[in-house]
Design a protein around this nucleic acid. Structure first.
Lengths: 153, 153
DNA sequence: GCGATATTGAAACTCATTTTCACTTAGTTC
DNA sequence: GAACTAAGTGAAAATGAGTTTCAATATCGC
């Protein structure tokens, strides 16, 4: 088991380095949470992560998962997102920026980047006197699969 | 007092009609909340609204403000938004769609529309197999005033 | 191994929002 | 306009995501 995955291993190493630098401690719980997060599919909620982590070690508490995800976010390995319902979802931080397209029926989340939009955002902010620092853009719609599947919802 | 304002009056009438249609009751509390909301500057939080409403009628409860804002949202007179911190802010629903540019220093909220961005969003969704239904776009930056005022923050 | 310091889990606590419930009202009905 | 009934109200309790507290435990540096 514990199938190896280059990205996950790299991330794990980065996390360990971060802990050392900050004089924080390495613990079995942190290792378990970080490992599962890094091997996962992305856009996980704390609840989902908690569930997965518990399967491996049922004594880990909710608070520890929250605390660890905060750490991961601080050290730049995870990005915290808040979609429509507000509960946090984490994704593995990638070097390149992207936005999200979300299916309103099945909840599928697709990532995309569109430089032309970014350029226009920059231009718009400048035009209104702002120095752009960041943005949040989410597109909501219905995916192909759901449209094929008919209108249940 | 009760300075008149065409838009607010129209909205108020629409609200009254909605209540009648839905066989809901007109009450002094609802009237007060809706009137204050419609005459206000937009992007109010429930807390701010509650404060303003209380000045006029101190016996109105928090729950009633929430309930009334929900009603206003349902009948299309108010739009509910969630910016970075997550607490809801309401704005008077305008006919034309717009997005927001928010100053990270002073919290100022500027509305804008940019059809070229909308067009690219539509195109992007289609390219990825989605039928676009809506979107959320917020730009964050620092406004001119805050940049002039130097870097306190 | 020792000891200082960080971490943990469980439970208590926030904070925004919603729900409950006994009581009051608005909009009919006669 | 009195009576009726469904809807609305305020206060307080409940919710749900997330955070903090605290006593017990584990880690790291020597």
């Amino acid at each position: 088991m514990a199938k190896s995955n280059r990205l996950a291993d790299e991330g794990f190493a980065r996390f360990k380095t971060y802990l050392r630098e900050q004089r924080l401690k390495s613990t079995a719980q942190r290792d378990a949470i970080v490992e599962i997060f890094l091997k996962g599919a992305g856009h996980v909620s704390v609840e989902e992560l908690y569930g997965a982590v518990r399967k491996q070690n049922p004594r880990i508490g909710y608070a520890t998962v929250y605390r660890t995800m905060k750490l991961l976010t601080e050290c730049g390995l995870a990005d915290e997102r808040h979609f429509r319902n507000g509960e946090a979802r984490y994704e593995i931080a990638e070097k390149d920026h992207h936005d999200h397209l979300i299916c309103e029926r099945c909840g599928k989340i697709v990532e995309f980047e569109e430089d032309r939009i970014e350029a226009l955002q920059e231009e718009t902010a400048r035009r209104l006197g702002f120095e752009l620092r960041g943005h949040k853009m989410e597109l909501y719609g219905v995916c192909l699969d759901c449209r094929r599947r008919g209108r249940e919802n």
